[in-house]
Computed example of a mutant assay.
Amino acid sequence: MAGFELIKRFFGSDPAERRTAPRSGVPKGALILVVDDSATIRAVLGKMLSQDNQVVLKAPDGETAIELARKECPDLIFLDIVMPGMNGFAVLRALRRDPLTRHIPIVMISGNLQATEQFYVQRFGADDFMKKPFGRSEVFARIQHLTQSGRLVVGERAPQETVTGEPEHSAAEHAAIPDIAMPDPHDLILPPGGSS
């Protein structure tokens, strides 16, 4: 038993304690939207985030994701690329064009091995890319990177629309928002049997 205690002191704690311990550099209480057509991915990623004291919203498709993003203004979105109906690129384009959601950091996720996906993600407005399958350390490394770069600030919500229906942006803020051209998702060529 003394050997186990020595190992425990050397490594800090047992795995169950490490899972619930706060991660340095990762803000607590972030509202995070997980968008994936796979219920398993939504559940696994949601559990990882919830165990780290994050508040998780889940959407099974692109249309629901846009609706939730507009309504709840999450601090961060994990967005699958390959989904039936509205794919992740179309969702990304819609979110970046909307004044209420264009500021939200977005991490695209996909199991497709095509390097072109990562190119499109980086070029057309996503903040990061995460390949499936992923582990806890990768998920929290992405969040920590966004936090350290100043891109993820918990509690910073988009300006709400006023009674007149105009967004509350100053002229300088509005001019600083880039107009992002997105590829037409129908132009993307995926290999036969490409997975999400």
Rank of each mutant, 00 (worst) to 15 (best):
M48D: 00
M48P: 03
L49R: 01
S50N: 10
S50H: 15
S50Y: 15
S50D: 00
S50E: 01
Q51M: 12
D52W: 14
Q54Y: 13
V55M: 11
V56S: 05
L57K: 07
L57E: 04
L57G: 12
L57A: 13
K58G: 09
A59T: 03
A59N: 05
P60V: 09
G62Q: 06
G62R: 02
T64Y: 07
A65C: 06
A65Y: 00
I66R: 07
I66F: 07
E67G: 09
K71F: 06
E72A: 14
E72L: 11
C73V: 12
C73P: 00
D75H: 12
L76T: 08
I77T: 01
L79T: 05
L79F: 07
D80T: 11
I81T: 06
I81P: 01
V82H: 06
V82P: 00
G85W: 14
M86H: 08
M86E: 13
G88E: 01
F89R: 01
A90R: 06
V91D: 00
V91C: 04
L92R: 02
L92M: 10
R93H: 12
A94C: 09
R97G: 05
D98S: 08
D98Y: 09
P99Y: 11
P99N: 07
P99R: 13
L100P: 02
L100I: 15
T101G: 05
T101S: 09
R102M: 12
R102N: 09
R102W: 09
R102Q: 12
H103R: 14
P105Q: 06
V107I: 15
V107D: 00
V107S: 01
V107F: 01
M108G: 00
M108W: 04
M108R: 12
I109S: 01
I109W: 02
G111W: 14
N112L: 12
L113A: 06
A115Q: 10
A115R: 10
T116V: 15
E117W: 15
Q118H: 14
Q118R: 15
Q118K: 15
F119S: 08
Y120N: 03
Y120H: 14
V121Q: 05
V121F: 12
V121T: 14
V121P: 00
V121N: 03
Q122K: 15
R123F: 09
R123M: 13
R123I: 07
F124T: 11
F124K: 15
F124M: 15
F124R: 15
G125A: 08
A126N: 04
D128R: 14
F134C: 04
F134N: 02
G135P: 07
G135Q: 09
G135N: 12
R136I: 04
R136E: 05
R136C: 10
R136L: 13
R136W: 13
R136P: 09
R136A: 10
E138P: 06
V139L: 11
V139R: 02
V139G: 04
